[in-house]
Design a protein around this nucleic acid. Structure first.
Lengths: 131, 131
DNA sequence: GTGTATTTGTTCGTATGTATT
DNA sequence: TAATACATACGAACAAATACA
């Protein structure tokens, strides 16, 4: 699993880790059923504390991306297993985030068409297979 | 200026305030040159501490949305006055945020077309005049 | 089977920074 | 400025599980 974190970023480490794992799932680098590394091994690889990895796993579990099987470890969840309420909450959260970004873009003087084009361009990048 | 904040949200108050002021600028409720309320009056209106409002204003100043004129108060900046480097940094930040959202959407099993449609729908809402 | 060593996630405590009053 | 509450990140120790001679 390809993960790199920036110690001197303002974004919390566990959220960086969360985003990277979600990206790995999105791009097919991690598939449903795959086992995630143990918190200790991943923490060691990244040079961070095991609690930070554990917290990232916990939020991914809360969001339905992974399932924890006790000491057996964490596994990538099947998208069809994402709870209904969970999925809706996630979509609502994403909608709000996109709308906030669009408002920022407009406040900067950008046009609606430019924003949509920009979003489409980033979607293209997000939906590439590998890099 | 129409601003409402949610005391029991997990999002920090000063960031909520920042988003709402950006939204007001985006929707034309606040225009370049307009004076923002004093930190004291706005804090009083919202029932929060003046330091919290002051922090929101400071962030908006750092991002180029408003200019502070000492004791005269805070004023909405002209978009054309946004520094070049500042504007580019903002766009880069927004691109990264949109790409991260697209990756989340993909990890949930959503298609690229659906994501773009969703982004366009939120852009429509962000570019409405008033509500 | 038994005993030991290793690996695992969890619990508790601590230090530091941030948000808010 | 000072005080508070909370969030973030780390370290040490624990108990269940696994591996293996």
């Amino acid at each position: 699993m390809l993960v790199r974190i920036d110690q001197k970023s303002n974004e919390p480490l566990y959220l960086q880790l969360r985003s990277q794992i979600i990206a790995s799932i999105a791009q097919g680098d991690l598939e449903p059923g795959d086992a995630l590394p143990s918190v200790r091994s991943l923490a060691s690889d990244l040079g961070i504390n095991l609690h930070t990895v554990n917290k990232a796993y916990a939020v991914l579990r809360d969001e339905g991306y992974v399932v924890m099987r006790g000491r057996s470890g964490a596994y990538v969840a099947d998208p069809s297993d994402h709870g209904e309420a969970q999925a809706e909450a996630g979509l609502a959260r994403m909608d709000a985030a996109i709308r906030a970004l669009a408002l920022e873009f407009r406040a900067h003087g950008g046009s609606k068409e430019d924003f949509i084009a920009r979003a489409a361009a980033q979607a293209d990048r997000a939906y590439e297979e590998e890099r």
